[in-house]
Design a binder for these strands. Sequence first.
RNA 1: GGGCAGGUGGUAGAGUGGUCAAUUACACGACGCUGUAGACGUCGCGCCUUCGGGCUACGGGGGUUCGAAUCCCUCCCUGCCCA
Length: 379
Amino acid sequence: MAIKFRITKKSKSSHARVGVIETEHGVINTPAFVPVGTQATVKGITVEQLKNIGSESLLCNTYHLYLRPGDKIVKKMGGLHKFMNWDRPIWTDSGGFQVFSLGAALEHGVGKIASIFPGHKDLGETERVIKEKFARVTEDGVEFKSHLDGSQHFFTPEKSMGIQNNLGADIIFAFDECTSPMHDIKYTQESMDRTHRWAKRSLASHKNSRQALFGIVQGGAYKDLRETSAKFIGNMDFSGFGIGGSLGKPKRDMYNVLEWSIPHLPEEKPRHLLGIGSPEDILKCVKMGVDTFDCVMPTRLGRNGSALVARGRLDVRLSKHLKDKNPIDKKCGCYTCQNYSRAYLCHLFRAHEMLGPILMTMHNLYFMENLLKKIRESI
RNA sequence: GGGCAGGUGGUAGAGUGGUCAAUUACACGACGCUGUAGACGUCGCGCCUUCGGGCUACGGGGGUUCGAAUCCCUCCCUGCCCA
């Protein structure tokens, strides 16, 4: 086993648990938030800053690093840890999400959590988007066009494993297809069955004993499918499990998905909820038994001017902060709040100074780290 | 005093007889962001509106024309050059 997972405490009032994932590059105390560093960097901040914030691991993306600089180069440079100078645990996403974000998501004009229903769309627009679709799914794998130069590529479970092996993360994911909330049950089931076959192939081609492979539960927002998928994937010899794919339309769908899936996953292995990470969601999902989360939200929001605060978000770009001497949050212990006012942050964003996104990213990641720490202590 | 070039919305700067309330950018205002095609995107940005439209606008005034930001006259202002 490339990792060890120890559950140190279980909640009496919920399915929440406290634990530790031990890897070759150190531990991850769970429940944990995993910052996303798609292109071998958490946008805007150094690994030193990330460590000071307290992040114990980060997640990079197979698709992006395969296209640039190329997994072979990363391998030649000594692997991701050495390449990006991060000696703590790293996760890599399998590239399956890009099948979605460059394929169905573009086609349907939605995210993982749909906020619109079909029927309102202009047909001409839809048609055009489909024509320009970047990804095509077949039994063997996914044919896709690079978003960088339009070149053709083909990912299979074996190829994803090979790339992730070259990248050298501690925890890697099986190749899957992330379905859209707009997919009907028929397509979602076909896709899920295919993802199951891909899971077997991923497992079969996974040879590197230093990496832990996580399987991914799919099945959209359909109860039967989620249960089937959780049982199927949960019974396989993975080191942990990711819950991915469409999480439905309204928010409660997502919680249903977890309620349908988690009971079928082995208790003693870690569970990761892919791509979810708003504070409210994490609070609820931990109670349902999720151990780890990765999400671009804190970094993206920060870069775009929104700070996470106890009450929700605070947009420092707003004119009302122009003369505000207060920090984002007086009680926050992060570097940004210890040293800078809202007025200054507001100014940085208006002046398009890069320090703005940097300071805000630091605040938001600290907020998440602090949130998860409090959650761990409260279980 | 003479010559030349100009004066367009918060700013810069298009437009040079009708399709112009006026391209575009910036600024400004608001909203959005959940395994990152995202330090990004969307919307608004003369006034009023029952959202159909109405009204006032391209330095000021006058004129030509069915019609002027666009052509003519005049005044004012700005910049550059010469004295």
